[in-house]
């Protein structure tokens, strides 16, 4: 059973492209996510082990930046280490990507039910205190950035066609972050393996989501890569 993405207010940045490719959508957190494509889920999961891309843009994410942002998130129970350009895994599976000493990009777990972003966005306020205790400022990351997941053993080879940073698994460890240029776009690449399968989150300008998606699909072709749904990623197993 697929739902119509336009029946919801919040819409993915390329739902038309995914629908044309045969995506079946399901609602998570008020938006339609491509859960699977035509064909068997086993086959899709097999693809995800080899090389695949999934659009996770409709899933929740958020960000905080500025003086006090990290301390405030820690006070909210997040586990964030000292190094920049490193992602810190949270108990519920979410990732807190430390982009800079005072900047965190948070992506929720693939279940989409962790609701960490929703909780944090609701918890933050300007407050009444004077002077105000620094607690950073929220960033509209669910809207500024499209969120793609790359999975499979051939992902590094695919990336080497669109990105100048060495993302091979023995050079770019799990939870490492590269803020760089991908297909001539500013992008954030976060390594996160699932069930032993190499995986990368690719976060970039939401307005160019269709362009970037097409670039990745093109770069995947020589390896036989394909678009998969969220379910195939979930089936790979946990981080």
């Amino acid at each position: 059973m697929s739902i119509d993405p336009t029946s919801l207010k919040r819409r993915g940045f390329l739902y038309r492209v995914l629908a044309e490719a045969g995506a079946e959508f399901g609602e998570i957190g008020g938006a339609a996510v491509a859960l699977r494509y035509r064909g068997s889920i086993e086959e899709e999961t097999h693809k995800a082990r080899h090389l695949a891309i999934a659009d996770l843009s409709p899933l929740p994410r958020c960000g905080f930046k500025g003086n006090g942002a990290v301390e405030w998130l820690q006070s909210q129970g997040l586990d964030i280490g000292p190094d920049s350009n490193k992602a810190y895994r949270q108990p519920n599976g979410a990732l807190a990507a430390r982009l800079a000493p005072t900047e965190i990009f948070l992506i929720d777990d693939l279940g989409g039910e962790g609701r960490l972003s929703a909780r944090l966005d609701a918890a933050w306020s300007w407050g009444k205190e004077k002077p105000r205790k620094p607690c950073g400022y929220p960033m509209p990351r669910a809207d500024s950035h499209a969120w793609f997941a790359l999975a499979g053993a051939e992902s590094p080879a695919m990336f080497s066609k669109i990105c100048g940073v060495d993302l091979r698994t023995h050079r770019f460890p799990d939870l490492a972050i590269a803020q760089t240029s991908v297909a001539k776009m500013n992008a954030i690449v976060i390594r996160e393996d699932r069930g032993g399968v190499p995986g990368y989150h690719l976060l970039a300008d939401s307005a160019s989501a269709e362009y970037l998606w097409a670039c990745v699909i093109d770069a995947m072709e020589e390896f036989g890569g394909a678009a998969v749904g969220l379910e195939a990623l979930r089936r790979l197993g946990g981080p």
């Binding site: 100048g164 940073v165 803020q179 760089t180």
Partner: peptide, 11 residues
Amino acid sequence: PLNGPRNISEF
């Protein structure tokens, strides 16, 4: 200093 060694085209 933040991102490490990169191609100068990123700067």
